[in-house]
Amino acid sequence: MLANRYAVQLTDVTKRYGEGPDAVLALDRVSAGIEPGTFTAVMGPSGSGKSTFLHCAAGLDRPTAGEVRLGDQDLSALRERRLTELRRTRIGFVFQAFNLLPSLTVEQNILLPLRLAGRQSEPDWLRHIVGAVDLGGRLTRYPAQLSGGQQQRVAIARALVTRPEVIFADEPTGALDPETARDILLLLRQAVTDLHQTVVMVTHDPVAAAHTDQVLFLGAGRVVDGMVTPSADRVAEVMTGLRRVA
């Protein structure tokens, strides 16, 4: 199996926090491959390791053992400075809390990853993604002047602006009402279908998972199940079973 078949690949990844008898095993020899141009949900009961999975896969945290690859790049082989540069240019992030800078305008927030990476913006690409997330006419506003859904649209545009290889989304609809959440999920789906992005999303919501191509289910730090072309009902059924044994 070629490593570059996958946009992201975890091989026997273990993550342990702490030492001795009080150590917490968050991931236990997890292996998974995310193919390019797909939308994947990572789900599991509280404490199952899904956030740790995302943090290790995105290079935000280093595994205790095992290998994480972004395309052909082994993240464990990178020093911290190079890893930071990689996160700024090859990975996009969308968080539940939006994480926008209140003193910057919408346009400045979107362009921030390019500014931090010392790269020039591409006006045509900026116009394209601003149109895709329906922020036209709002570029000079500040986050406090936007609704929660509009702020998450800014965050998605910011994640797209560097043309990353993978977008990692951590509960991106968790702070939104159901109708707005649906709009955000459709935007992420559009990023995969129309912009050929790869999106990996941690979520607890079976309805959100139903927008994806596949679901990875975690339990006690291991991948315990998977589902292709998920439906909300089927996902909810698996999650109910996992909570019973958690």
Score class of each variant (00 low, 15 high):
P113V: 11
P123H: 11
F168H: 00
I167S: 02
L186E: 15
Q150P: 02
A26N: 01
V154Y: 11
N109R: 07
D124L: 13
V94L: 10
Y6D: 08
E179R: 14
L83I: 09
D22C: 03
L218K: 12
G136V: 14
T64V: 06
Q152Y: 10
V245K: 07
A236E: 15
E67M: 06
T105Q: 10
F168K: 02
L186K: 14
F39M: 11
R153I: 08
R141T: 08
H204W: 04
D177K: 13
M227T: 10
E165P: 02
V202Q: 09
R119E: 11
T162F: 06
E122R: 12
H196L: 00
E35V: 11
D170R: 07
F95L: 07
L75D: 08
R29K: 15
R153W: 03
F217K: 12
N4K: 12
G226N: 00
A191H: 10
P178H: 10
L188H: 12
R16D: 01
W125Q: 09
A57H: 06
D205F: 12
V8Q: 04
G92M: 07
V133R: 11
L25T: 04
Q96K: 09
R153Y: 05
R243L: 07
D28I: 06
Q9M: 14
V166H: 11
D72E: 14
T40P: 00
V130S: 01
F168P: 04
N4L: 05
E67R: 14
I184G: 04
